[in-house]
Amino acid sequence: MPLSLRQKLVEVGQQIKLARKRRGMTMKEMAGRMFVTRKTMGRLESGDPGVSLGVLAAALLALGLENDLDHLASPESDAVGNLIDRQGHEKKQRIRPGRGKVDLDF
Rank of each mutant, 00 (worst) to 15 (best):
S4P: 03
S4T: 13
L5F: 08
R6T: 14
R6N: 14
L9P: 03
L9D: 06
V12F: 09
Q14S: 01
Q15Y: 01
A19V: 01
R22S: 15
R23I: 01
G24P: 04
M25C: 02
M25S: 00
T26V: 05
T26C: 05
M27S: 05
E29M: 05
M30P: 03
A31V: 00
R33A: 08
M34H: 11
R38M: 05
K39A: 12
T40A: 10
M41C: 14
M41E: 06
E45Q: 07
G47D: 01
G50R: 12
G50L: 09
G54P: 02
G54I: 03
A57Y: 02
A59F: 02
A59K: 01
L60W: 13
L60V: 09
L60G: 10
L63G: 05
E66M: 07
E66T: 09
E66Q: 13
N67C: 09
L69I: 11
L72C: 08
A73N: 12
A73K: 10
A73F: 14
P75C: 06
E76L: 10
D78N: 15
D78P: 11
D78I: 11
A79I: 12
A79M: 10
A79K: 10
G81R: 13
G81Y: 12
G81L: 14
L83R: 10
I84P: 03
D85A: 11
Q87F: 14
K92T: 14
K92H: 15
K92G: 12
Q93D: 09
K101W: 09
D103Q: 12
D105F: 09
F106W: 14
F106P: 02
F106K: 09
